[in-house]
């Protein structure tokens, strides 16, 4: 098979998360770490923070704790998003501090709706320059975000919204399983992860485990090995998010984040202890596996 697209055929390589991050990342890239509540790539975010990358454009529909952590450590200069909250708990306090007080560095924001971001990822995966959808009718984001345009359907005259497609330099996702060839299986709430990988120039996938063969059904969501650059086995890598079939969401940790992130000093102390002085191995100790086969 010949692919004429940017990435050509990839060969998924099994590496440590540290090596994967060092290879794909530089300052100033456009990076997506996706996960819609489920399978959020926390370990990858922490590795990027530890390596000290700066000036990143961060893309994510629901920038929750991990982007709050990255923004608070000064990794980002721009955020493209559609819902910036700690779901069910409240606001993102490090993001607010950056937007309202430019701490620790100023943060430019480009704000969309979920429908726009979902369409923009899908357009990116489909190699389209933009995404077309029925949206933003009466919504004031049109007035404050110049990347939202309206056009008229050439066939019906209906007014439609257009946004640029999302094409990250690097996408990071977390998934349940990879097989020995590097094919990746993702199950449960799958969000925009398939689109995030297929729209990106490079992709890094952390997985709960590497197994011989998937035993699954014909419509399983599988990213073939030739769509992925690096795979790192990091059990527990989604904590305090969850991995369906492996461990549950640590809702208490999401509630505790509200207190930790409320104060700059407390936040920095917490980050030093729980992120800067750690390695990806620590994630396996943070979750309680419900799957008896898991480590």
């Amino acid at each position: 098979m010949i692919l004429f697209w940017q990435g050509l055929v990839k060969l998924a390589k099994f590496v440590s998360l540290q090596d994967a991050v060092l290879d794909v990342m530089t300052d100033g890239l456009c990076v997506a770490l996706e996960g819609f509540t489920h399978l959020i790539p926390h370990a990858s975010a922490h590795e990027i923070i530890r390596k000290g990358f700066k000036n990143l454009t961060l893309v994510r529909m629901t920038p929750d704790i991990i982007y709050d952590q990255m923004i608070g450590m000064g990794c980002a200069s721009k955020l493209i998003f559609s819902y910036a909250g700690n779901p069910g708990v409240g606001l993102l306090r490090r993001l607010r501090d950056a937007v309202e007080n430019q701490w620790p560095v100023p943060l430019e924001i480009e704000e969309h709706s979920h429908a726009a971001m979902a369409n923009a990822y899908e357009a990116g995966a489909a190699s389209m320059p933009c995404a077309l959808f029925k949206g933003y009718l009466g919504a004031e984001l049109r007035q404050v975000n110049p990347n939202i345009k309206m056009i008229f359907c050439p066939f019906t005259g209906e007014e439609l919204a257009v946004v640029p497609s999302i094409r990250p330099d690097v996408s990071f996702i977390h998934a349940q399983k990879a097989d020995r060839k590097g094919n990746v299986l993702i199950e449960g709430i799958i969000g925009v992860q398939k689109e995030a990988v297929l729209s990106a120039a490079k992709s890094v996938v952390t997985v709960e485990e590497i197994i011989e063969d998937f035993e699954t059904h014909p419509n399983a969501v599988i990213l073939p090995h030739w769509t992925i650059d690096y795979i790192a086995e990091v059990p527990g890598a989604a904590h305090p998010s969850y991995a369906q079939g492996y461990y549950a969401r640590d809702n208490a940790a999401y509630k505790e984040w509200d207190t930790i992130s409320a104060n700059r000093e407390l936040y920095l102390k917490w980050m030093a202890e729980h992120v800067m002085q750690q390695t990806p191995d620590v994630f396996a100790e943070r979750v309680r596996f419900t799957n008896p086969q898991s480590k």
């Binding site: 629901t62 937007v99 709706s113 979920h114 009466g138």
Partner: peptide, 21 residues
């Protein structure tokens, strides 16, 4: 004000299109 906010709330999420669709 959007560009100089007193309080930055989470944003719309799915709501703008739920409201119209």
């Amino acid at each position: 004000d959007y560009h100089n906010p007193k309080i930055r709330l989470p944003g719309g999420g799915g709501a703008p299109e739920i409201a119209s669709q």
